[in-house]
Design a protein around this nucleic acid. Sequence first.
DNA 1: GTCTATAACTCGATAGAC
DNA 2: GTCTATCGAGTTATAGAC
Lengths: 207, 207
Amino acid sequence: MPERQGSSEKGEQAMAILNAAERLFFAQGYNGTSMRTIAKEAGYRSVAGLYNHFADKEAIFEGLIRARQPYDDIIAQVQALNGDTPEELISGIFQSLTQLMDAHMDFFRLVMIDYLEFGAIHVRELINDIRDRIYGMVQRITPVANLSEEVPPIVFIRLMGIQVFGYVMTKNIMPESFLGLLSDEQWRSYTLDLILNGMVGIKGVQQ
Amino acid sequence: MPERQGSSEKGEQAMAILNAAERLFFAQGYNGTSMRTIAKEAGYRSVAGLYNHFADKEAIFEGLIRARQPYDDIIAQVQALNGDTPEELISGIFQSLTQLMDAHMDFFRLVMIDYLEFGAIHVRELINDIRDRIYGMVQRITPVANLSEEVPPIVFIRLMGIQVFGYVMTKNIMPESFLGLLSDEQWRSYTLDLILNGMVGIKGVQQ
DNA sequence: GTCTATAACTCGATAGAC
DNA sequence: GTCTATCGAGTTATAGAC
């Protein structure tokens, strides 16, 4: 029985290294994490073992951000959505995205590391790889969600991206004394209100 | 004539160090930048000179993020705004914020560094320092902007923060092949549409 | 307050035995 | 494919002359 079923499949050891690297990058930062500590965290007795699986430190980071990319999940979930009204569909999309955000919070940290340490080159590569699938998804949704056909699809993509990234960033940065004033459920509800109705449309009564 | 007019005033040398550190942090990352290169960039012939002005590397970062904080500018600009209608006021606020974003793009990079390297402790300190002023600002705006009195002010603060952070993040991360499809002016206009009217309200006709 | 010099250590990466 | 051992260069921070 052949063990490797494709050149893009990572072996068990490679995955163990990525998991170890992720824990350390999050705890100590990218540059603050040494190849030595990654090796130790992954169960190796020496650094040299890493270099059998990855060419260098940046290759580990690139492998990690690819392993954690949430687009397959996003596209699958959004495809599966149906809504009787535009509001229901948009609401469903945002619900899906916030769920996926929580499940993939690690990815957003990796994006920030990529931006600061590498000028976001790996994220941009990822986005270009799935460019066509995103476009197709938005074009399929446009009529159902009653979005204007005159607006380029890329506008809706970025506007949704703004909500997602902004939501994650503020969640991580705002003091607990602010965030704790409302429940996660309430925060999601208010944000959805904004997306559906705009700022003035936020009424503050939970139905 | 006394040269220092308050213990919080930074001297010329300290400012030169902060400027040098900022350039290097942005070019090479925080951990990728050494005290040696900061010293050289600031015009010193040795590292030791830095330690006369800052206790250690983290003190330089803290001094930098405080020097670059945009809240005084934000509050001053928002105070000065007047709008005949709620739409005009909210529109004016977002215009001010995006202008300030462009003028303070450096601050947002520092925020991300703070989040990744220090768990955002310095940003949270900053926010807590100006907590009351932000609240006061929002409460003064609420009736004019026709925002619901039943919604806690903190909701509008975070929702505006989401737009700002999301706008900056996507601007920095999206491939140029996406971003370049529209002008900065068009991007601002569409984002404002979302804030005022919600997703379905985006019509795509520039008036 | 700036300098030289250096201590004490860690870094990424590799050579070569097994 | 994992190990030991090590290279050469880098790091923060400090001691002490001026």
